[in-house]
Design a protein around this nucleic acid. Sequence first.
DNA 1: CGTTTTCCGTTTTTT
DNA 2: ACGGAAAACG
Length: 953
Amino acid sequence: MISLDSFSKNQQEAIITNDKHLRIIACAGSGKTTTVAGKVAYLLDCKNGFDIKPENIIAFTYTEKAAGELKNKILNNVGRYRGMADMYIGTIHGWCLKSLQENQYEYQSFSVLDDIKLKLFVDKNYDIIGMKEVTKLSNPSVSLRRFIDTSLFIKIMDIVRESEIEKNRNFPDNILKAKNKYQKVLLSKRYFDFSMIMEKALECLQDDTNLAKSIRANLKYLIVDEYQDVNPLQEKLINRLQEISGCKLVVVGDDDQNIYQWRGSNNKYIINFEDKFDRDKVKTIPLSLNYRSSEGVTILSETLISNNVKRILGKKMESSKSQNFKRDSDILYNRYTDVNLENEAIAQYINDILGVKFKDNDDVEPRGVAFSDVVILLRTWNKASSIVQALEKYNIPYITAGVNQLFEMDEIKAALAIFNYLYGDIDEEQLKEKWLDIPHAKIKLEKIDHAISQLSEKKPSIGEIKDNWEYSLQDIFWNFLSNAEVYEENFIDSSSKELEQRSKERAEIIFFNLGKFSQVINDFETINFNSTSPNFHLFSFLSFITYVAKDYYPEGWLNNPYKTPNAVQIMTIHQAKGLEFPCVVIPGLNHNYLPSKKRGGLSEWHFLDRSLINEQSRYEGDDDKEDERRLLYVALTRSQKYLLLTQAPDLNNRLYKKESLFVQELISAKINSSPIMITDLKHKFSISEKIDPKPKEKIKNISLDFTSLKDIFECSYRFKLISVFGFCYPLNQRMGVGRSFHNCLMEIHKEAKKGFLLSEDELSELINRQTHFPYLTKSIKLSKPLYDKVKNNVEEYYKDNLDEFKNIEFVEQEIQYKIDSNILVVGRIDLIKKIGDSGHYETTIVEFKSDEDDADAPLTKDQLKLYALGHRELTGEMANYIMTYVIGKNKPKAPVKLYDNDLEEIQQKIKDSVALIRDEKFILTDEREICSENCYQIRLCSNRIKYNIKPRR
DNA sequence: CGTTTTCCGTTTTTT
DNA sequence: ACGGAAAACG
């Protein structure tokens, strides 16, 4: 457990104050996450007498990444503490979904649409989804247009559901009608969008449901991170949870870092938090000591933000001075006569700062600044391409997710050409050319010809359509890659050592992009798998690419969680929130850029009356520039020590000629009455200050589930193809059988555990509810047999296992197992049975497999052993047996006795696998036995040639 | 030099 | 569709 000594006085107070609602105002770099993690550990430590168990605490964060970091810190604090898997640490949306599905079983078969899939879904269902109901305020005969205004419609639906309506007002009938239609269509196809998950969860909490009961019984502390970013709907949910349970609220945030107001978040909730409660029941603790940045950075930022009026009174960020501040070199503001000069100067500055001594903290020796220590922060992406050009000119490595669109990459142009060819837009020669155009590709001519001839058989026929056609673009894509023998190795040039290294990296990027393209197909087919004809399917895919996907998908190497190259990062200020860098460059301090110009054009407010929404102006930006000032504040406070701000008039754009009004505010910042920011000093760092550049070793937090772990166990290259490159497997109409089985059994077991036996009618109703085949086409012959298969097998299972139901201990139990300080394995156990009385009993962990899975595989045993490990972590007890139950064959396999060394063995196996991921050793297996037609990735793997394997269709 | 007219250019993103 | 900057006007 933790010691309080390592915390500051205010941090300690935040940790030990637990009898009141707490507002922690945490400035940038104040050790917020560490403090919250410390607080949780303090609450759990029985020495402190709180009688708090993991399930009594819920912690909400805004991103999965933030959740991962918090979880990791908490687990490192508490060590092996029993039952930690029962503590919810994650996003609000994640919690809502989980709670809904646990409480209302029919939601088990639902899935959540992300924004691109939602867009596809709305367009597909344009006629019935309510888009036509939304009409222009100035001219009610004009309604939202299909394809063109889809994202406006989605925005309006979000505002309608997530914002707070003005008192005594109501939405007009057409908007309400649209909302009802929209939600009805989503529900009927068993989909949620993000707002709906929260709305439904809130609804569920209004009544005295099982969920409400469980909250009342369990919840004692509700922690909300980034509280400045909650929107009205989230605030309602938080309040509801608090009212039901009477729990203590712990909100953590910084009103100065609210930069998502245009998305509906409202700063007032954190500013007015204390007013919600009686004076003596609430406390505010400021964490205003910044451990990240030098005094120069800290006072500069503070001077800027103090120009904002709408903020919590009397707060002031101060520096811990863990970084020293050197005037005249650390913080520079340079003006140039032209943007091109500005960009080149930035490139020169980066080259110059390389190797300058930097200390990560007081306890370590200084190292030289490396490329990866530098970040260039942008207000808008349109600035990026000219900066990239300058960096390329000076040979500075960089990574970014916003400059190159995915569809501008050669390999993606080639991949897309496959479908242009199928549709008849281009001929064989043009398609061939596209593939041979990819730089450094060693694709064999005859293989490309072979692939194209195979492809030509897949051209959709215009004539009659077979009743049960299946036309999978994903399958076509995979087969093409396989037939043309497009393998990662074919992009590697081994003629010299240096070339080999460079081309290896390029090959990875090419495959990463092809993997992205596979995801694009998957996004499209998830929604549109059941089209009216193959030809139309192809046509709508190509339209989707041209009109939607083209400027939607970035080339995402930056987001690759398993790679941290030594390169300058370019990102938007929004993306940089929560990060820190030794050196921050903020270019383009121009009027109309930062602060940015308000946007013109058709907006949601031409369809939705502004006066309906409480504090509507926050969506559009206030006139006083406070939003934009906060943005610059966030950008500045990312820096630990070095800051370069630059400005130049853009000769080609009349909007960006004047200097930003924030510059004067920054110039006025002073320490001991001399200015902090040095203006127009073209500083050179002296050679004597420099040592060898050495990138900081970044510790990656990795969370693995059994599915990905299974891949590494078997073949680490398969893991690379799926988890690193992101290839998606082709969909097919039969999908959903396994999940339907699973959900049926889950519900049966949960009911049985409560002691309910089901009548025949109830059972068939249950099966109806849980059976779902999302990709079945409308002209279905398959529907009945698939449904019957689920029904027969579930009914048989129910009959055969009536006697066993009384032994159920856990159903769908979440487990987690910490491998080391940054690696967590998570999973969910289908069923745990306990036989015998309290004096002497035996525990069995059960995993269900449908007959399509290979239940005999040795890997299933590994999976169960892993679960046993998680079970021991959860309960402190060692399970006695593990067993699988094959549903299709409807027979249990005999339980296998579990021994201590089984758990040690699996632990070691996981450790070895994780080491492979860390060292990025995703190698092809050399063992023939592992490669077979059953490996579903064999089509993308050169072992198919080496071992001459025919992929299974 | 102040006012009116014309014409140009046009975010941020997570769940 | 609209704000803002430059050009044109008086």
